[in-house]
């Protein structure tokens, strides 16, 4: 990891230049929230709160993406090519989402590498921005080990007042700020530590407490598969999939074929799917292997706090708090579920 200091005006100039030359995607204002969108200048960027409605995963793993295109000729299907991937800069990503992208990198590369994701990932330059205050009262990132980005970026910027303290985890990150960076001095490092310390204290004060220990979460889940919390909360689940759609680490998808009405060509696309929806585990013959809303809530929570936690050694809820916000009946928060299970022993 290399450390630099970048003067603020210099960075803004760079962003403006990048926005002219390539595609820069950053959080911009959207009503009383923000959303990741292509920008034309640094002035459009919203640097801190509020959080984006959906995470930046959409640029690596789009809501709907063609897997195949085909044409029919002489009664046979011919698979045709898909569009090439474009280079893009993903700017202003917060630590919760950087962690999530780091986790997705592992998931998509594991065993059967998924080129559709990995190609897009390769073409992204990932620039993170540190959070100095919680983005909303729903954030639980500090509790779920999501506030420390753990090097999951090309470049990471922390506002230390007069300048940005920049860390480059990759050559790509270094190259991005070539020519406008100065090496970080000991005094800068001290400033950074002071900023981070103050910040962490603020998060600790404002974020909801996690009652069990972070490292015990997986065990706690596993031991409480029949806890009444699933039934009680599940009863109020719409099966609306909002929590899945806004989650930076939900990656399940459905596959659909779309035939052109002329019946001479079509595409096969994958579309975001959610394990909380009614028909997620239903097979063609009609059998639904996870029919009960409470079981679906348990499945989602377990994926974050138990299955993937055990497999990869960290919580797959990075505490962004989007599902906490999105869930209209307030049942889905992994932290609240963990707390409830912890304090209501069965």
């Amino acid at each position: 990891m290399k450390q630099f200091i970048i003067k603020k005006p210099k960075l803004f100039e760079l962003i403006d230049k990048l926005a002219r030359e390539t595609t820069v995607i950053a959080p911009v204002k959207q009503e009383n929230f923000t959303s990741f969108a292509p920008i034309t200048s640094a002035a459009e960027i919203v640097w801190g709160a509020p959080q984006t409605v959906i995470p930046p995963k959409q640029f690596l793993y789009p809501q709907s993406e063609d897997l195949l295109a085909y044409e029919f000729g002489n009664g046979e299907a011919r698979i045709t090519g898909l569009n090439a991937v474009k280079e893009r800069v993903l700017f202003g990503v917060h630590p919760c989402d950087l962690n999530a992208i780091g986790q997705m990198d592992r998931i998509w590369a594991e065993k059967n590498p998924d080129a559709n994701y990995l190609e897009k990932r390769k073409a992204i330059t990932l620039v993170g921005v540190d959070c100095l205050a919680p983005c909303s009262s729903d954030a639980i990132c500090l509790r779920l080990n999501g506030l420390d980005p753990k090097g999951r970026f090309d470049l990471f910027l922390t506002d230390i007042g007069s300048a940005f303290y920049a860390e480059a985890a990759t050559k790509k990150g270094e190259a991005l700020v070539e020519g406008l960076r100065a090496p970080a001095k000991a005094a800068d490092g001290k400033r950074l530590t002071a900023v981070q310390k103050k910040r962490t204290a603020l998060f600790d004060k404002q974020e909801k407490k996690l009652l069990p220990k972070y490292k015990d979460l997986s065990k706690l889940m596993k031991a409480n598969i029949d806890h009444p919390v699933w039934e009680e909360r599940g009863k109020l689940c719409y099966g609306c999939g909002s929590c899945n759609m806004v989650c930076p680490t939900c990656y399940c998808f459905d596959v659909q074929d779309y035939m052109h009405v002329s019946l001479v060509k079509g595409v096969r696309s994958r579309v975001w799917d959610g394990c909380m929806t009614e028909e997620f585990a239903k097979v063609a013959s009609g059998e639904n292997f996870r029919e009960d809303r409470s079981h679906r809530l348990r499945h989602r929570t377990y994926r974050k706090l138990n299955y993937l936690y055990d497999k990869w050694g960290e919580s797959f809820c990075t505490g962004c708090g989007r599902c906490v916000k999105a869930c209209l009946t307030k049942i889905v928060s992994p932290l609240e579920i963990a707390n409830e299970i912890y304090s209501r022993k069965i």
């Binding site: 959207q30 009503e31 009383n32 929230f33 959303s35 984006t52 409605v53 959906i54 959409q58 809501q63 709907s64 719409y238 099966g239 609306c240 999939g241 909002s242 759609m245 806004v246 975001w272 959610g274 929806t277 009614e278 028909e279 916000k325 999105a326 209209l328």
Partner: peptide, 16 residues
């Protein structure tokens, strides 16, 4: 689809 509008609403990134 047999899922609620929320699924597609969220995919679009709308503010609820």
């Amino acid at each position: 689809p047999n899922f609620p509008v929320c699924v597609q609403c969220k995919m679009k990134g709308n503010v609820c």
